[in-house]
């Protein structure tokens, strides 16, 4: 019998907290709850959850404090439940170390997909190849095969793909991408990233009208959306 992952749900609204816990349990996870940031820290320390779902705006102690407190001590994945129109909050939460966000009102399947992606990222062992539906990336030989045929990428494009695929499911800031790939030319602009990303996407997407692997994440950067197999 496998031990189910423990998810900490932090929200000041009891209806959301309870119904969300119930759905997570139905999906096979164990849950713990807290009603604000401070209680969240206490439960986090005593329960050592595998993943944290937290609201941002809460009385007493908000989600930002919780994220900062968790990040000071651990790398446990954090998914933020943000509200629409609060883009600045979303970006700030990611900056503080949150791994992903969903926008309220979200659908449960969408949330579960994000949870799976985050849990998988933390358990995935470092490997020499990344495998997705229809796409395989050989990190050692720096080869990419899409739909059974090899795709020729420039070194920059390959680095971009490697970085995003290794962080599948996680929104990546353009600044992070520049810092990782254009280490030697930190004056690189977002436009440069966009140009390379656009040509990478043209090469790996089987249908450019319907992206399957990489999408833009408004006001953040990019996200690799395919689930690893």
């Amino acid at each position: 019998m496998t031990v189910s992952s423990l998810i900490l749900v932090v929200d000041d609204d009891a209806a959301i907290r309870d119904s969300l816990s119930k759905e997570l349990r139905a999906a096979g996870y164990a849950t713990a709850t807290a009603s604000d940031g401070r209680e969240g820290v206490t439960v986090f320390e005593s329960g050592a959850p595998d993943l944290v779902l937290t609201d941002l705006a809460m009385p007493r102690s908000d989600g930002f404090e919780l994220i900062a407190a968790i990040r000071a001590a651990s790398r446990t994945p954090i998914i933020v439940l943000s509200v629409r129109g609060a883009d600045a909050d979303k970006v700030r939460a990611l900056d503080l170390g949150a791994d992903d966000f969903v926008t309220k009102p979200f659908s449960v399947p969408e949330l579960l997909a994000r949870v799976r992606a985050q849990l998988r990222r933390t358990t995935a062992a470092s490997s020499v190849a990344l495998e997705f539906d229809g796409l395989s990336i050989d990190l050692e030989r720096r080869r990419v095969v899409q739909g059974g045929r090899e795709v020729r990428l420039t070194p920059t494009e390959f680095s971009l793909l490697e970085l995003l695929a290794a962080n599948a499911g996680k929104p990546m800031f353009i600044e992070q991408i520049i810092a990782r790939i254009w280490r030697d030319t930190p004056s690189t602009t977002a436009d440069t990233v966009r140009v390379h990303m656009s040509s990478l996407r043209k090469k790996i997407e089987p249908d450019p009208s319907d992206p399957r692997y990489i999408i833009t994440e408004p006001w953040v950067g990019y996200r690799f959306i395919a689930e690893p197999i």
């Binding site: 609204d13 119904s19 119930k22 509200v83 309220k104």
Partner: peptide
Amino acid sequence: LTTPITTINIRMES
């Protein structure tokens, strides 16, 4: 306005 709809969405799943 968002909170009740979020709750409805989650309950709908069950």
